[in-house]
Amino acid sequence: MNRALILIGIALANAARGIRRASTTSLLAVLTIAVVLVLVGSAWLLVGNMASLLDEFGAELGMTAYLDPALSEASQRELVARVSQEDDVATATLVTKEEALLRFEKIAGSGDLLSGLEENPLPPALEIRLVPAARTEAGVERVEAVLADLPGVTELAHGQEWIEGYARAIALVRGIALGLGTVLGLAALLIVANTIRLAIYARRDELDILALVGASRTFVRVPFLLEGTIQGLLGGLLALFLVFATFSLLQSQLEYGLELVLGRAGLAFFTKGQSIALVAAGAGLGLLGSITALVGWKGTS
């Protein structure tokens, strides 16, 4: 058998032995990583679902360009095609005078309000939805500048405050998630590093003996790195299970509440890729914790 494979097998056996031997501290490390990842995972799930809801609302935010009623139908269609080409524009829909009147009557509840007028006073309009990246003050200004130069556009209307509020809400939610994730991640890193340091201290006799019989630095260190990674992996799996169980328990109640308040109910759990990323984050945290513990440890002579 290849010597490298034999050494990897020995390192894995030594890592497993280390975890068994210090089962209490190992369990503590697994639970710490799990708790941190449950918090980070929950925040991630919350932010993900909030962002989806905000995106749904954001998709409805847009601009309306009122057109000159004298504009021919062909010119109106040309205008739609021209505006649709803009990168910041997701869709541009023409609302004719007749459609505008129908909408008004539907909102007002009857046609009585405008029945005294000889002709339809409502102008045709372009309803413009912006791509998510353009739902900012700058994005609105860019589209505004394009529309202002187009012949036939008489007036522009948009919910600027709504758009700015949306952008702020998204930035705030993402900022909180990032801050929370960083702080919790660092805390977990320190705890794992200290757990591994304790393990090294508890096993210094073994490390002395390994040094005596000619163990290389790699032979001594790799089991500790594996130990941290295994602990992190177990912590990540436990966290994923806990987040999934909690989500499954609360999903129907949360969706009912959201339906009542916002009229929307779609909550989604992590995708397969995101689930793997959460578990991998645990393994990475464990590995990084071990590396932190071993940095500065000179080993035995």
Partner: peptide
């Protein structure tokens, strides 16, 4: 090297203690 205080690992068997010197050089099991 041999010492007065033996320097054996208490949680390993006699065989495992002796095998340490072979493990560090990747001797097949």
């Amino acid at each position: 090297v041999v010492f007065q205080d033996f320097k054996l690992l208490e949680d390993r068997t006699v065989e495992e203690n002796v095998r340490l010197a072979l493990d560090v050089i990747g001797t097949p099991r």
